[in-house]
Every structure is written in C-alpha cells, then in structure tokens.
Design a protein around this nucleic acid. Structure first.
Length: 843
RNA sequence: GGGCGCUUGGCUCAGUUGGUUAGAGCGUCUCGUUUACACCGAGAAGGUCGGGGGUUCGACUCCCUCAGCGCCCACCA
C-alpha cells in the first residue's frame, strides 16, 4: 500500500520528456481503487454496454495479438464509459483443454513421467496448480495494457458456475435430441490421443508419392498404399466402359501376399480421368469411403489404432506405425511386381491445429451436436438459427465480407464432434451402468454408475461464454442487465471456432443473440509481413515495448493504421514514433499549464477574441464531431489520425505559436486541452489521466463526459487558411533565398480579407519586418492577398511552372464543351472559381 | 477445384457513394536553439496510384482482363 500513498503525495512533475514507466502502474492502481471498472459504481444515463473479453488461454502469456485485441476492446469500453454508459468489460481466462494438457504433459515428460503413471486425479491436480500461477501472470499483463475491465466479475471457464452451465447445456441438448452418440469416422490426432472437430484440422499442401498398384484386374492409384490392406470395395464410374463387366462382382485380390476381398460398385463421384479411374475403398480410414461403404453396404475393417499403429487386420504389418507399414508394404509390392508406377503429386495433408501431427481418420464412438436436427418446438435447426441471426441483420459482422464467409461455413457445417479423450476438460455428464445410459448432473443413487471417461471440446464451454459468465443458468441480475452484449471484438481466425458457435448456442439456449456487432481484427505481423513465430524469432513482446516506449505508444501503434479484417505490421520504429507523439501531447500540456495564470476547469466555450481563436474552436468542434462519428462506426484508426492531426498540426504548430504572440488565451487553451484529453483517453489512457491530475478535478478523467460538438462557421476556415498560406509563402521564399531564419527582411503586406492585427501575426510567425512603404517591387501573392518582400527573387520557378500547369488543366477543362454540357453546374462553377484564384496567385 | 483480399513515392500505410495540383508518418537532404517539446521547429526532394483495355465530360476510385503476393474453404482417391 506504500505505492498508493506515494501516488497521492506526488504531484505530476512536468519534466521535459514524459516518462511512462513512472506513472503507468500507479495510475492503474488508482483506477482500480476507484471502483469505476465496475458498472455498479457508475452513474450515467443508465443504459448498459457490455463487452465479454475473449478469454486468453489460462496458461498462455500475452503476445502482441492479445495486446491489439485488448486495445480495441478497451478503447470501445472507455469511449462508452465516457459517454455515460454503465459499461461492463468482463475479463476471464479459458481452460484451453488440449493446449493446457499438452503443456503439462511436456513438463511431466521433462520430469521423466507421464499422465498415465500419475493417474487422472493427480494429473488434474497438477494441471490446476500450474494454471493458478499462470493466470496470475496474465492478470498482471492485462493490467499493463491499461485494460479497464471489471476484475470483480472475472471468470474462468472451469469455475464451478461455468462448469454447471456446460453440463446444463449438454443435458438440455441431449433431451432435445440435439446431442447424440454415434459411431463415425472422426479426425484422430495420435499425438494428442484425441478426436478433433473438423475445423481443428489444418490442411497443408505437400509433395507426395502417388502409387499405381496392380490390384487384381485393376490399377488403383493411392497416396496411402498401407490403407489398401483394409479395402473392402472398389469404385468405378458407372459409364466407364473399361470396368463395366466387374460392377457388382466380389473379387479376391492379392496384394503382395496379403489377401483382401472387395466388392466392385459404380459411383458417379469417381472421376475416370483422375489417377487410374479406379478407387480402392477403405471404409474405416477415410470419411469419403465411409459414406460409400454405408451406401453400398461394405464391410468395415479397422486397420489403424489410436496410436497410429497397424492392427491385426494388417497381417504381417501388425504393430508397425503407419509410415513404417507404408515403407515395408511398398517394398513388398515392388518385389511382387505390383507397382506399375509412382508419380509425384501435390497432396493435402491433414494436420492437428494444436500440435501439427498427421491426422488419422478413424471409426470411433463419439458424442456429436446435431446441427441439422429440428429443435423441438421451434421448427428450426441450430444451423438455421445461426444463419438467420446474421441474415436478419440482428448480428452485424465487420468487415462485412466475413458475413459471406460465415454463411458458407455454416451452410456446410457437419455435425460437431464434441467429445475428447483428454483428461483436462469438462467431463461429459453421462453415466453408464451395463448397457444403460443416464444423462444428468449427478448419477442416480442406486448401484454403480460409471461416468463417461471423455471430456468436452474446449469450444463447447467457450461457446457459452457471453452468458455463462453472467450466472446462467441462474436467472441473475447481471444476466438480465448485461446480456446480450453489444460488441464482440476478436480475430478473424476464430470466426468459426468461437464466434459461429457462440451464435449457435446462444440462440438455442437463450433465444438471444450473444452480441450485436462482431468486430474482427486482423493478425499482427512483422515489418516484412511475416507471421510472428518462435522459430523466426521475429516476435514483438508487448510488455517489452510497453516498458521501452510506454503502453500509450504501444496502443497507438496498434490502432492507427489498422482496419478491420486486415493484417497489421508492427515494428519498433513505429512504436517509437507514437512515443514521440505522446511526448508531444505531454509538452503541449506542459506549455499550456506553464503559461496560464491558473489551471482550472472551463465549463463553457469561451468567446473567440481573434481569428485564430475562432479557427481553433471551429477546428476543435469539427474534431469532436468526426471522432465521435468515426468511433460510432468502428473506424478507430481514422478517429486516431484526426486526433493526431489536430493535436500536432493544428493546435501545436499553429495555435500555440500564435498564443505566444496574441496572449490572453488562458480560457481557450484550458477549455480545449481538457476536452482533448477526454477525446484521447480511450486511445492513450495513461498519459491523459496523468495530465488530467493537474486540473485538480474531483474525479478521474476516465469518468468525465464525452464532449458535444457545437455548430461551426465554415467561413473561418477560409480566412485562417489565407493567414497560413501567407506565412508558408514567406517562409518558402526565405528558405529558397537562403535567408537565415533569424534575419528579418522588410516586408509589406496587403490583404482583402485579413486585418492588420492578423498581418502582424503573419510577420511574427514568418519572421519578417513589416513596413508600410516599400519601393522595390518584388512581389508575391496568394488568392486574396499581395505582398512585397526584400528578397532576391519572388515566386520560385518550380512553383510558377506548377501553377501554370494547373491553370492550363483548368482552362482545358472549361474549354471542353463536353464538360460544360455534362458536368453538374456546381462543379463547373467551382472550376471557374479555382481558375480565378490560381490566376490571382500568379499575378 | 471454389471463394476472398492486397498491389499508391526508399519503408509502413490513408484515400468515404468517381469531381482540388493524389495525402500522412518514418527515412533522405537543407537550414535552425524563437518563453512546451531535438522524442523538436522551418523548408525541400521523391509517386505516369501493378500492366493492358473499357465505361464516363471526368477514374487511385466503377467494369473486364493479365501478372505478382497472401489468406480461407474443399472427402478428388
């Protein structure tokens, strides 16, 4: 608690450069202590706004991808909080079944043991212990990013309440006939020793061998010769003349001494032109063949076991691994003269998305979610509900092209295999007693019921995340207040794994959409556009960057330049650039605070005394409007760019410089700074909160009110840009003529629209000596003004040429009768006006 | 095999429903210490907007086509 005392007693010291490390942890503590991360402590207009944090893996460490997601999420939340919403940002972690189990198994292996020798109970205890410490690391890392989430509501997918929600969902779905147990070909990862869902299998194109085998009267081409040991069928195209006579026959085939019996059948899906035009069918080890086998009533022979080894059916190849068996079988076939040829072919390998091991399709009895089954009482399937939610626009996906991808995926979704053979996960709430099955939270009291050994797919529990975290299935106040949530912010890479399944499950269980808008961010890449990976060692550690450049700079580098669905490159120079900006904001504040008589809150917009006041207030109101519009439309980058442009190029470069000359701008400066800090706060929460402390306000910046834009006079902009144009013109002339900045050449200025006081400002900014009379006729002009200056030459040659080119392009346009006849009147008028102004300039 | 995205100065990117002389940051070059900031200021150079064709009075923006890069989906053995 010493740190807090230190915070309260330390005033913000305005040293020359902002040092983020000095403030960030203390500011975060102050926010947390305030209780305003919890919506119950916020007083606003009473409307709620919720984001569920996509839960990071409980054993993970935060990488820059997390940092980017958390930044967008926190940005939205802080914006909404400033707008007066009761905002809930609910944090948590995921037990990440396979990923976690794999990690702990690795540790065990290093210790020279494994989960089987430990036993289920001890193993699970070990996993829990490991997770507890890891979760704590993540919590601290999330804080480091400045995330304003409600820690009092933190959840974990393995919490008791959430586990209850998982069982409850399973039971309801089972009772509605939406979960069933079936014997089917599943994706089996021999390394993880578990099934995987279809979308957990990754495909990778690889160069493979395509073996043409002499196979009875046929030639059969295959990339996996060893599976032919368990063929029970042969498929040909119905109209393929070569093989008509065999259709319907049952043939005994000898493959290098291994005997198989196959039934020949015709199927339209066989392409007579591919390979040999004959397909050997292995019902037990290919899902396509499995379908054939069911339709044509073929026998199933299980050849490969769960460890990827050959079973008894493989005869002399028994106990070999798949690859060993292939090698030996091919050798035997060669010796028997049964290999006609071997081609090189590009082939898709199926790999486990977690560990990269080769997937074996195996027949197995597993639990499935039936996506095409009508839901009792609703006349619709899960798939239909999930498609309609997006089609009806009740859920909007950004960027919208992902809606099409979503439909395509949903429409082609097969039943979802949800049982896993790993230990770490939610145990399936099913009990067996001899041939009976009981589905429920607890087994019946009588006799010995034994629970299903398997656990549930980790995505099953995460699909309930938006509401299981709020207390469902209990009818809690939180569930009523904060569900459905408003925004789901996550990466496009888990659109199917997670987003789609949340929609599907929430529609079924609650009859609600889990969220209104899905904002999908892109992947983070290095400067060359490569994925960050351990092997390339090109990863950017967000915490290291935060320590080096400050969290605010890191956040800016992740937001500005990003657009939804597009990958984002990140590298140190970029972050350093935003560190410079944060320092600029700091110094702007430093200047304002040191130049005003008293630092105070200005409630009403101060009256503008000069053109520059009018201009900066107009620009500022314009900024408020644009930032608000952009944030409302999820255009975070655009909002940030406009803030950046205003702060640096308008406020600092022009208005502050003029303030040094015109004086008496305390109120305007303070009025703008105060509100500018609020606008920046969602992007750069730390530095803005630090600066804010100098206002000595009662409350933290994070709960101030988002400013409202006032009406602006568009004429002001024109007058002020005339002033800017003259300053720039004179500076150019001085630079081109090698007049040192400190020299003040005589200059005479005349303007149709600028007052003498304004011309004086110009003289100071451009560093010339203003005189009334001027003999030497070295002149220059802008659209509305004229000047004479004591320089070697006037308008530079390049500038003249540029202008001449511009003038002739405008003249050509206006002389073109097609243009005069077809273009809208306004465009023609504008063009004429531009020509007149350009000619004035040249004069 | 389908589908999608990207290609704008040396680098990283903006460019809203077609209508200023195509912008920014970084980098480069020149100059510079003026009551915040050298993590700074002033100025400059640098682009036929991937190639070709079309629609239009007018195309970075719309259409077609080609090329390169990338991603997703798919049971072609």
């Amino acid at each position: 608690m010493r740190k807090k005392e230190k915070l309260q007693s330390t005033k913000t010291e305005f040293v020359k450069a902002y040092e983020a490390q000095q403030y960030e942890d203390l500011i975060y503590q102050e926010w947390e202590k305030s209780g305003f991360f919890n919506p119950d402590n916020l007083s606003g207009h009473g409307k709620n706004f919720t984001i569920s944090m996509p839960p990071p893996n409980a054993t993970g460490i935060l990488h820059v991808g997390h940092a980017s997601a958390l930044t967008y999420e926190d940005l939205i939340i802080r914006y909404k909080r400033l707008q007066g919403y009761q905002t809930l940002f609910l944090p948590g972690t995921d037990h990440a079944a396979i990923a976690t189990q794999t990690k702990v198994e690795k540790i065990l292996a290093e210790e020279g043991t494994d989960r089987h020798s430990l036993g289920r109970t001890k193993f699970l205890a070990r996993v829990k212990k490991y997770i507890a410490q890891s979760q704590d690391t993540i919590r601290q890392q999330i804080r480091k990013i400045g995330v304003s989430c409600d820690w009092s509501r933190e959840r974990y997918t393995f919490d008791q309440g959430l586990s209850q929600a998982v069982s409850e969902s399973f039971i309801r779905m089972y009772n509605d006939g939406l979960i069933y147990r079936g014997n089917r070909i599943v994706n089996w990862c021999p390394r993880c020793a578990s099934t995987l869902a279809d979308d957990e299998v990754e495909h990778q194109e690889k160069n493979s061998k395509f073996y043409y085998l002499k196979y009875g009267p046929f030639i059969v081409a295959t990339t996996r010769p060893e599976t032919k040991l368990a063929d029970t069928g042969v498929a040909v195209h119905p109209s393929d003349k070569r093989y008509q006579k065999y259709i319907g026959q049952i043939l005994d085939i000898d493959l290098a001494g291994h005997k198989i019996t196959v039934k020949v059948f015709a199927n339209k899906e066989v392409d007579p032109k591919f390979g040999s035009g004959v397909v050997g069918v292995t019902p037990a080890h290919s899902s396509a063949d499995f379908d054939f086998a069911q339709r044509h009533k073929l026998e199933f022979i299980k050849l490969i076991n769960e460890e990827g080894k050959i079973l008894d059916a493989g005869g002399k190849y028994k106990s070999l691994t798949v690859l060993e068996a292939r090698k030996k079988f091919v050798k035997d076939l060669k010796a028997a003269g049964q290999i006609k040829k071997i081609e090189d072919i590009k082939n898709n390998l199926s790999l486990c998305y977690r560990c990269g091991a080769l997937i074996e399709p195996l027949p197995s009895e597993q639990w499935f979610v039936a996506v095409d089954q009508k839901i009792p009482g609703r006349q619709k399937t899960l798939k239909q509900l999930a498609i309609e939610a997006v089609r009806n626009k009740e859920i909007k996906i950004l960027p919208s092209r992902f809606e099409k991808i979503y439909y395509h995926w949903m429409e082609n979704l097969h039943d979802w295999c949800i049982s896993r053979q790993i230990w770490w996960g939610h145990r399936i709430p099913v009990w067996y007693q001899e041939d009976k099955i009981y589905v429920g939270l607890k087994p019946p009291k009588n006799k010995n019921w034994i629970q299903d050994e398997d656990t549930l797919d980790t995505w099953f529990s995460s699909s309930l995340w938006t509401f299981s975290t709020l207390g469902w299935p209990e009818k809690t106040k939180d569930l009523k207040n904060f569900h459905p949530t408003q925004v789901m912010e996550t990466g496009y890479d888990i659109l199917f794994f997670w987003v789609a399944r949340m929609i599907l499950m929430t529609e079924y269980l609650l009859g609600q959409k889990p969220f209104g808008t899905v904002y999908l961010h892109g992947m983070i890449r290095d400067k060359q556009g490569r994925k960050m990976s351990k092997s390339l060692d090109n990863g950017i550690d967000p915490l290291e960057m935060s320590n080096k450049f400050g969290t605010d700079a890191l956040r800016l580098s992740l937001v500005i330049g990003s657009s939804p669905g597009a990958d984002l490159r990140i590298y140190e120079e970029k972050i350093a650039g935003y560190r410079n900006f944060v320092n600029k904001l700091w110094n702007i504040s430093r200047f304002i605070f040191s130049s005003v008589d008293e630092i105070k809150i200005i409630k009403k917009q101060p009256p503008a005394k000069t053109l520059s006041d009018q201009w900066i207030l107009a620009e500022f109101n314009n900024l408020i409007k644009n930032v608000t519009d952009n944030l409302d439309n999820f255009k975070f980058s655009q909002a940030g760019e406009e803030l950046y442009e205003f702060t640096w190029n308008k406020l600092a470069d022009w208005y502050l410089e003029i303030a040094k000359i015109e004086k008496n701008k305390d109120e305007t400066l303070l009025y703008i700074l105060e509100r500018l800090l609020i606008l920046w706060h969602p992007f750069t929460p730390f530095v803005t909160e630090v600066i804010w402390r100098s206002f000595k306000a009662k409350d933290l910046l994070m709960i101030q009110s988002w400013p409202q834009a006032r009406k602006i006079d568009s004429k002001i902009k024109k007058d002020f840009s005339e002033l800017q144009e003259l300053v720039i013109k004179i500076r150019n002339l001085k630079a081109e003529n090698k007049i040192p900045p400190v020299d003040l050449p005589n200059c005479h200025l005349k303007s149709k629209i600028l007052k003498d006081s304004e011309l004086n400002i110009i003289a100071k900014l451009a560093r010339v000596n203003l005189v009334d009379k001027f003999s030497e006729a070295k002149s220059f002009s802008t659209s509305y003004s004229r000047g004479w200056i004591n320089l070697a030459k006037e308008m530079s040659q390049t500038e003249k040429e540029k202008l001449q080119k511009y003038i002739s392009s405008l003249e050509n346009k206006l002389n073109n009768s097609q243009f005069i006849n077809n273009a809208p009147q306004q465009i023609i008028k504008d063009t004429q006006k531009k020509l007149k102004l350009a000619k004035n300039k040249l004069r």
